[in-house]
Design a binder for these strands. Structure first.
Length: 115
DNA sequence: GCATTGACGAAGG
DNA sequence: CCCTTCGCCAATG
């Protein structure tokens, strides 16, 4: 059995949940997620959580999460460096020069879109 | 137990 | 305009 009650939910799981809530065709940023979780001062932790995201289940659409520039900074962490871009492309998200086109329009901020 | 690193962000030079 | 530094927190060495 697991530990007793209490919200043992790790910070990582919290991140995964939010990332999974990202609507298709939209993207989010580490900072936006971090801010929504309250760790706004540590967007790094969101990125760190993503590092373990590939071990999380169900899988986390980490490809929908980019840095504040809209750049695919984490593409090297995927199975293949082009996987992230292809996944985004399938969601009608255009990527140009490793950056998301019309990033401002694709951006989905949980603290704004989500209540 | 301290130093380094990390898929970030904002500010300063 | 490009590069550097600081901050923040957690994991790893």
């Amino acid at each position: 059995m697991k530990k007793d009650s209490s919200a043992e939910k790790s910070f990582f799981e919290d991140v995964y949940e939010v990332v999974r809530l990202i609507p298709k065709g939209r993207v989010s940023t580490y900072g936006a997620i971090a801010r929504y979780l309250g760790t706004r001062l540590s967007a790094r932790m969101v990125g760190w959580a993503m590092n373990a995201a590939h071990t999380a289940h169900p899988k986390v659409p980490a490809h929908r999460v980019v840095n504040r520039n809209g750049m695919l900074s984490g593409r090297h962490h995927f199975a293949t460096p082009t996987l992230m871009e292809e996944l985004l492309l399938k969601e009608k998200i255009l990527v140009k020069n490793d950056k998301i086109v019309d990033f401002a329009m694709k951006l989905w901020d949980p603290s704004k879109e989500l209540i």
